[in-house]
Computed example of a mutant assay.
Amino acid sequence: MLDFPNAKINLGLQIVEKRPDGFHNLESCFYPVQWCDALEILPAGKNTFTMSGLPVPGDPETNLCLKAYKLLEKTYNLPPVHMHLHKVIPMGAGLGGGSADAAFALRILNKLFKLELTIEELQNYARMLGSDCAFFVENKPVIAVERGDVFMPALLNLSGYSCVIVYPGLHITTAEAYAGVTPEKPTCTMEMVLKQDIKLWKDIMHNDFEKSLFPKYPELANLKANLYEAGAVYASMTGSGSAVYGIFESDAPANLIFPKNYLLWKGLL
């Protein structure tokens, strides 16, 4: 069974407070975009896992797709499978690619072996794999709170807008990103911000990580400025970086030029 785990962008990201467990409570809008990996899972004589596409650092045995399989296998005694992951979404970009792979592995296994898990059950398994994994179970716009794993409906439809995402090849660790942030409760909730016209977002919607990361990595600030100069109605870094995106009212300009080593995605929202 083949499926295509997709990325997400953060529309705003406010770090609200540090939790007793060492994590942070946040508030953000997660919005799916169709920059996709490919994940195939087939019944097999023994468990195997292969990868292609962008190189994934670390031991393949720690890949979240395998962790998803092992999580369900404990309860449902799943038969062996062959998994192949073709990696297209860059890592360390704030796009949630690894989380999407994990959630889609749960979804595929649920269908493949007719486990009949509900959306809520799949989300609970996904939360065991990572903070934003659960988002990709339903894969629709939400306001994410707490660790990014508790969701409220986002009454937002950006159909007809286009998006450009640029990844400059900087791998920013979560620890590095959070080290520069001072948590602060927002004066304007994400729900209130999303009700405003998108043309006003530039002044009222913020990613808290930009304040410390832009001076450290000026190419990120330049990317955001370039996207606004090209006509974006809103531009921002996504997640804890380092991908930067711009939202355009119509098709993205064809003459956007970035260094050859940058990865670029364009498409409709």
Rank of each mutant, 00 (worst) to 15 (best):
K67L: 12
P32T: 10
P32F: 13
H82L: 07
G130P: 09
L170S: 07
K199T: 08
D37A: 09
S240K: 09
D203R: 14
I204N: 03
G58W: 03
Y228V: 10
I257W: 04
M91E: 13
N139Q: 06
L106G: 02
M128S: 12
L72R: 06
R107K: 15
L256C: 11
K199M: 02
C29A: 12
A93Y: 06
D208W: 02
G160V: 01
G246Q: 02
V137E: 03
D3V: 04
L227W: 12
K185I: 08
P253G: 02
N226M: 12
F104C: 00
Y76A: 14
I9S: 03
P183N: 01
A154Y: 12
A179D: 07
N226Q: 15
C29D: 05
N10K: 06
N63T: 12
A103F: 00
P80T: 02
L213A: 05
G58V: 06
P5H: 11
Y217A: 05
F104Q: 00
F104H: 02
L129Q: 03
T62H: 05
A134H: 01
P60D: 08
T118C: 08
N10E: 07
Y76I: 12
V233N: 10
T62K: 06
A254Q: 14
M190S: 08
L269V: 11
L194R: 05
A252S: 15
Y178L: 08
L170V: 14
S52P: 10
L268S: 11
D251H: 09
L117F: 05
I119M: 03
D208I: 00
F209T: 02
E121S: 09
F151R: 07
L117K: 00
C65Q: 00
F4I: 01
D21S: 15
Y178V: 07
A134N: 03
V81I: 11
K74P: 04
F23M: 13
L112G: 08
H171C: 11
A134W: 00
P259N: 00
A243R: 03
P60M: 05
N207H: 07
E146Q: 09
Q14H: 15
V145W: 04
F113S: 06
N77T: 07
G231T: 07
A154P: 10
H82A: 13
K70S: 15
N157L: 08
K111V: 04
V233A: 10
A177S: 12
E138C: 11
W35P: 01
Y69A: 07
V16T: 14
N63Y: 11
M190T: 10
T187R: 11
G97Y: 06
A38C: 11
G58C: 10
L42G: 04
A126F: 02
